[in-house]
Nucleic acid binder design. Structure first.
Lengths: 245, 245
DNA sequence: CCGGTGCCTTGACCCAGATCAAGAATTGCG
DNA sequence: CGCAATTCTTGATCTGGGTCAAGGCACCGG
């Protein structure tokens, strides 16, 4: 999404300082992390890791979006994770990657060498506590996603995805005016299909339908405007309470 | 599955002592846990918690099977977690349950009062380290499940579920002879359908088809015999490597 | 200016799995 | 023992979304 390079490579000015795995670290702990960290950038569409590759690092997403996905031999693909800024990539103690990781947009990672990071986890509860919290959140997200995959119709799936992205945008940037929030879709039709367990044709048809019926408005192919969030929420099939945040 | 009551209520003789959240605890830590724990039993089919209920405890499954599921207002239901012995129920720091929890078979929980458990986590890294490990494993399982829900055919879904259960049985009890493993299905056709995002009719038909073709054998409706695990594995659509454990 | 390449849309047709419906098998209880 | 109540199986039919195919649109490099 944002192409602006992140060049202030010290934690103090890091945009994800207070949400990432290092959120709870004190100055001395940050210093220790600093000594094992390095940055890497990827362009939109580039692969980061293939399933089965050795992984000698773990990382935080600083800017951009990455996807985790699983592929079957015959080519069927299911996205199983979407990593946004501050999300964590990799698993301490794991040597080989179980998923394909791809940069969906231009991406910057803050990487930590795995071995020293694992060492640090043993004596730095602030890191492992925060990682536990983040992992529990991801598990909740995965479970919400399972309901979408297993039981929702194509239309509900699309509406759910748009609502999820809209909510995240709203919680980060404050693009949200009382009426009408809008955002740039970070995903292609094909990635949305992989996310939702659909084909790209079905994604396209359902987006057209939602547009035709005025649930959303498009500006170009990627910019989405939600004139009435509650209306969209109804289309997701979820409880109507809204449940903000 | 097993109805035998668990009556030796001290950790030393606990059947899940070395796999549960307390696996890494020392004697003194066990003692602390002991002071905040109590057992509860449920009969097969009984609800344990409804989504939205206040939860004043977290727990380990000692014996039996429980399910986590999400329901939509119109009745569609998706199972999002299956808790087996040693699995952990609840989330430290969370006051209200986000899922319905049901005892699938007769069930015994080792419950910990939530507040003191949270306190303990702050100064007992052994507990939080183990919980992190378990949560990461659950996240991996959820992601494997997402591939099943999003991209597999009904037949592949059934084969995958049977393979998952067979593998777990094999890793616990050693019912596995070189040729032919067998187990009692802990789930009804309807629960399997909720697990896999299918209808119970489709589950029944696909099980019949696998039986007709000799991939599995049934003894009654619940006892399943797998004469050739590799054959079953092929039907799952996954890589043929097998990947034991 | 033109052809190429991604990405997206739309139409026509088809099929896996849902839905509707009717029993069969098993269990439990008065 | 008979008669519910569950749970499961099987058949007939319908349909949402997949598949196949044909363009449209925007951007790029030559």
């Amino acid at each position: 999404m944002s192409d602006k390079t992140f060049d202030h490579k010290e934690c103090g000015s890091c945009p994800i300082r207070h949400r990432a795995v290092c959120a709870r670290c004190e100055a001395d702990e940050l210093e220790e992390l600093d000594s094992i960290k390095y940055y890497r950038s990827y362009e939109a569409g580039q692969p980061i890791i293939w399933s089965g590759d050795r992984m000698d690092f773990v990382a935080s997403v600083v800017t951009g979006v990455a996807s985790l996905s699983q592929a079957m031999e015959d080519g069927r693909t299911q996205m199983v994770g979407l990593l946004l800024p501050s999300d964590f990539l990799g698993r301490p103690g794991r040597e080989f990657a179980p998923y394909d990781v791809v940069a969906v947009s231009n991406l910057t990672l803050c990487c930590f060498r795995r071995k020293p990071f694992e060492q640090m986890m043993l004596h730095t509860p602030h890191v492992s506590q925060r990682l536990l919290e983040m992992t529990l959140d991801e598990l909740d997200a995965a479970r919400e996603w399972m309901l979408i995959l297993g039981r929702k119709t194509a239309r509900e799936k699309i509406a759910s995805l748009l609502a999820i992205i809209a909510r995240r945008e709203a919680s980060l940037e404050l693009t949200m005016a009382g009426d009408g929030m809008s955002f740039e879709l970070p995903l292609t039709r094909e990635s949305m299909a992989d996310y939702l367990g659909l084909t790209l044709e079905t994604v396209s048809r359902q987006i057209s339908a939602l547009k035709r019926e005025g649930v959303i408005t498009l500006e170009g192919k990627r910019k989405v405007i939600i004139p009435d969030y509650d209306r969209l929420q109804i289309e997701t099939g979820d409880d109507t309470d809204g449940g903000l945040i």
